[in-house]
Design a protein around this nucleic acid. Sequence first.
DNA 1: ATTAATATGTTGCATAAACCTACAAACACT
DNA 2: AGTGTTTGTAGGTTTATGCAACATATTAAT
Lengths: 406, 406
Amino acid sequence: MNDPALTASSHRRIRQSNEVAALKALHQFGRLSRAELARKLRLNRSSSGHIIASLTADGLVREAIEDPPELPGYARAGRPGIMLELVPDAIFFLGVEIGVEHISTVEIDLGTNIVSTNVEPFDGPSISVEAAVDRAVSLALQSIPASKLERCEGIGVSTPAQMDKHGLIRLAPLLGWRNVHLADLVRDALPLRVPVLAENDANAFAIGATYGRSEAHSGVTLFLVMESGVGGGIIIDGNLFRGANGLAGEIGHLIIGDAPGPRRNLEQLIGLETIMGEYRKTSALDHPTFGNFLADVQDRLPSAVSIAEQWAKALAIGLVQACRIIDADRIVLGGSVAALYPLMTARVAAHIHAIQESSFPFPSITVNDEGTLGSAFGAACMLHQRYLSLESQRFADDTAELEELE
Amino acid sequence: MNDPALTASSHRRIRQSNEVAALKALHQFGRLSRAELARKLRLNRSSSGHIIASLTADGLVREAIEDPPELPGYARAGRPGIMLELVPDAIFFLGVEIGVEHISTVEIDLGTNIVSTNVEPFDGPSISVEAAVDRAVSLALQSIPASKLERCEGIGVSTPAQMDKHGLIRLAPLLGWRNVHLADLVRDALPLRVPVLAENDANAFAIGATYGRSEAHSGVTLFLVMESGVGGGIIIDGNLFRGANGLAGEIGHLIIGDAPGPRRNLEQLIGLETIMGEYRKTSALDHPTFGNFLADVQDRLPSAVSIAEQWAKALAIGLVQACRIIDADRIVLGGSVAALYPLMTARVAAHIHAIQESSFPFPSITVNDEGTLGSAFGAACMLHQRYLSLESQRFADDTAELEELE
DNA sequence: ATTAATATGTTGCATAAACCTACAAACACT
DNA sequence: AGTGTTTGTAGGTTTATGCAACATATTAAT
């Protein structure tokens, strides 16, 4: 691109920008009247009406069927407004996660509601990229009737890989892929022409966990996904921060300690493998599960508690280090290992207090309890977000020769 | 604020946005004709002409006096354009650094050229905030004739402190200040009503070192200022990233190592105090200076080299940790200790290679050689940047009752 | 029950600013 | 001198917003 944030706005772009703002507001607040919308957008009521008329004609917005009184007992004077809402099934988006052990797909509607999901076991390392993409695409499309296909407005793919913002994978160590253009492969495998985005799975998870939630719209949120691997993503004011190479938030590779011997990174200290490796040494069970471990910690079994204590300390160090750099005010833990955190909240807090200088603020830490679909859902949200922006396909009519400006 | 990035664009705002874009382009590229500007801004030539007419009437832009042929020997066909340029002395901005040992002030013009500077010794810890602000303001204004004052369009203040984006200092350990509203104090001490911004000194330094430079306009740059203390700032796509509490990039407080005993942070490993403390133990001189140390390193004096080697290793660890979180593609070292880096480039690179996994990209590391005025200059740049944005005072006419919408 | 007050949605008109087309001007090249 | 090319400007068109007015729907008060 030539000059970021330096391009001017023309006539049509005003309307586009305002339509986008209206859609965003309706998505964020659920239901608004024309007058409320006008206030939120600092527009004239009349302009608001025009914009809504336009969006209604496009089938994206409708007047909500009369609800029972919104908040009984609380009524303002004056003519009540006609509530407007997005038409959920006007369009839909698909999200696909190509994981190491499974492929999941999610279909979301314009209201970011999950419409349907599919999960399929999968042996990533043994399968080529092309085959994986084929299976992912057919799984995503299998429950979509052909008549509905044209209402698809985008598909997002997430996978554990380092990739740039165009979807070119530099390296996917867990899958054995290198230098493949995932987004292009998906585009080619699709029977339709829709926008395709690819993103690192942890980043996608982070988007999915914050997207649409009004709580997370400002501030800095650090998202940590702890499974066998430990990934991370950073959300700044509601937008994903990718860094220069899409590696921002890769907190699993922080170096912890400089004791002699092999250097250890955070992933090797708080990942599922490590916990279970230690736990197996002490458990009486033949094939102990992570659930067994959690139960033992809850029962204050000393051997388990000791493992958890090590985990809490390493986690605390990692979080403090990260906050010194990005100054997050909110940390969200995800992945199956996150279930350990509620049992260790006080210990983690104690470690953080012990480590960091007292003048630094203490970020809030919460656990994300969404299932394993988070990453696929986030990938779908990326396209929802794109649709509700000026890059939306809706506005692509004559800007075809735009990319040759270097 | 109500809804960030959700407010709509009206008619006037388009023009404002385009005027701002034109000013930015002229600042970035120096000289442009109306036609070139139209291409850069993706505007019609005629619109470009209107906008320039507007800006010329405001006295901000003028047609450049005919230069000798730009690039002799290279001429395109067609009528040559009339070059336009910013009128440098149309307005000016002031930057003030309230340091621990000195106060510096800088005056810059619309072209971000330094017009004048002042430096004064100062004993920060012994002086109250109010007195410090008074001295800083009078120093900044002392060389400005009264007739010129009304052309001042903003003052920036930088100081070593944790502060929020409104200029409220939470804590300034080196100066002994706590919970004072620096920006408000400066506003009150001024005999004029202009925008006032306050910022952490390392952040201001980072802005000053990247502002206007077209190289740094995209990507992620980590800026490190190494003096007695070690501060840092992060620039993302040309804009300062403050984090949730203005502490982003405070890399000096990273924890290095987890050896038993007192925990050490990066500042304690690579700061000037530590280097000189170690150096004093081995130097034959009575009062060795940092310059002596550099000379000894250059001469390969084993004791000095050993200190430098420790420094290089700690620096490498700190940089790698930071890059795992923010994925910077460019690192700039500043402050007096940065002079050590050119002597240790290879060692630092070797340590980085040893520490980080090979799949991660290697950021470029450069040294910023600007003098000690960087922080004051950066503070002034913040107001230049603000003037060249939609928050500019130029557009504040009737939006007085805007802040009560909460 | 009637009236006043208030907020909403809609309509017609004014306005602003961008776009398009055309044209004169200024240069390079033949 | 003539042609081709690019620039700056002027006049007219388009589009979307703002403004003011009005009918409408509801609550509160008399």
